[in-house]
Computed example of a mutant assay.
Amino acid sequence: MANLRHALIGGVALLGVLVLAPTRAADAGATTLGGADPSVIKVGGLYVAAKSVDGGIAIRTATTLAGIAAAPKKQVWSDTGNLGEVWAPEIVHQDGRYHVYFSAGRSAAHRMYHISSATADSGYSAATKVALPGDKWAIDGVPFTYQGQRWFVWSGWAGDTNVEQNLYIARMTGPATTTGARYVISQPREAWERTVGNPYINEAPEPILDPNGRLHIVYSANGSWSSKYCLAELRLRAGGDPTYVWDWYKSNGCLFGSYAPNMMTGWDATLYVDGPGHHTFVLERGDIATSPPSGNRFPTMYHAVAKGTPYSWSNRYWYTGTAVWWGNVTYRRANVPGPTTDLGYGLKFFE
């Protein structure tokens, strides 16, 4: 039985698309794949996912996005060197090879590592440490190319202690090498991203280009151990420098979350899941040059906990969702250099 769902967007009730009526919270985009931190790309007719499992990294491939959950896992890397906890692998396909970036370590020793292969689910290289400037605690790193320059963006600490997690960017010269300094582009300093802390966090950055070619980085805020975990974004001003923090404009609240008081005005809290976060844009080869145009919704995946289920890391599952570019969105700021407002595309996320 199908029904018509209405969504309240920007204070106006808009007639939504025809969707299946969920019978319970877990039906809304839920998969059977437990865990966190989805990373999925599309290579031709194949969806390729990377996941941290069994002390290493597994790859799943399927011909549909929903099919990822039931696809057999193929272990492509194991922590034979005893690096430590293996977190949040991110997969991309560049220069004819699959590249997986992940964080490994214990406590303050977490650093970014890289493996690669010519084949999606076998033949991966040994792990190489990514040479990030400053050599500090680092997680959730992902490479991308913007205006002909390769970049790497990640979540890390300013020093050697767990005070807060910031987002950093650096220029890349190779799959595991960078050049120059690291530059902070976001810190968790807004009230809505400091609802849950100790530490306060900005993490899981995911780059994407809007229909005007402007760079966005969607990230997760508030503690991942809390149902107040959510997605927010940074938008680079037109003609801006990715290394200059004040050229980035931050959304004025969460764009996808379950805690209504933290949502940006005009963006509604989720109906079926709690604490959605650490998402992936399902882009061709993971390349932001293939970012979707305006108009139609495009696929995403994220992790969350079904409403009515106690919120815990062990209750997280991968969910399918969609997003759409939303025009004429103003982001505002105060007491910083440069213009206080910026108009451009934002993102609407749907369960």
Rank of each mutant, 00 (worst) to 15 (best):
R332I: 09
T119G: 02
H303M: 06
Y219S: 08
W137V: 03
P292N: 13
Y219M: 05
G84V: 13
G156M: 03
T195H: 00
G286L: 06
P22W: 13
E85W: 13
Y272N: 14
F281P: 03
H6K: 07
A50G: 07
E85Q: 13
R97V: 13
W318K: 10
P211E: 14
E193H: 07
A238M: 00
R235P: 01
V86I: 15
Q94T: 13
P261C: 00
T161F: 03
K307A: 11
P89Y: 10
Y219K: 04
I59F: 14
S258L: 07
K74H: 15
H93K: 13
P205M: 00
V86A: 01
Q147G: 04
S122H: 15
A304R: 10
A176P: 03
T341W: 06
R214A: 09
V305N: 15
A118C: 05
F349S: 09
D37K: 01
V273G: 02
T341P: 08
Y272M: 10
A104M: 02
V329A: 10
G197H: 01
G67F: 14
G197I: 01
D274K: 05
A13G: 03
V273M: 05
G45V: 12
A176K: 00
G29R: 04
G34T: 09
N198P: 02
Y302I: 14
P38N: 11
E85Y: 14
W137N: 02
H114V: 11
V86Y: 00
S291Y: 12
H216G: 09
G344V: 07
F298M: 15
H110N: 06
R194H: 02
Y249D: 12
D268T: 08
A181L: 01
V130K: 06
L8P: 02
W313Y: 14
P261G: 00
A69C: 15
L215G: 05
Y249W: 12
I208F: 01
S227L: 05
R150Y: 05
S186V: 04
D210F: 07
G253I: 02
T31S: 11
S226K: 04
W192H: 04
D140I: 09
H216E: 06
Q165N: 10
G346K: 04
A306D: 11
I185C: 02
W192K: 01
V48M: 06
V273E: 08
W87Q: 00
K74Y: 12
N296Y: 10
S226Y: 10
T63M: 01
W157N: 03
L347P: 08
S291C: 10
A289E: 13
R332Q: 11
D247C: 08
T23P: 00
N202K: 02
P207Q: 07
A7T: 14
P143C: 14
N166A: 07
A7E: 14
T61V: 12
A50Y: 03
W154F: 03
N262K: 03
G55D: 09
F102K: 12
A176D: 09
S125V: 15
G338L: 07
R171C: 01
A36C: 11
V100C: 08
I169D: 04
G239H: 03
K136S: 00
A323V: 04
E351L: 08
Y47V: 03
A88F: 09
A334F: 15
N328E: 10
K129Q: 08
R189C: 00
V329E: 13
H99L: 12
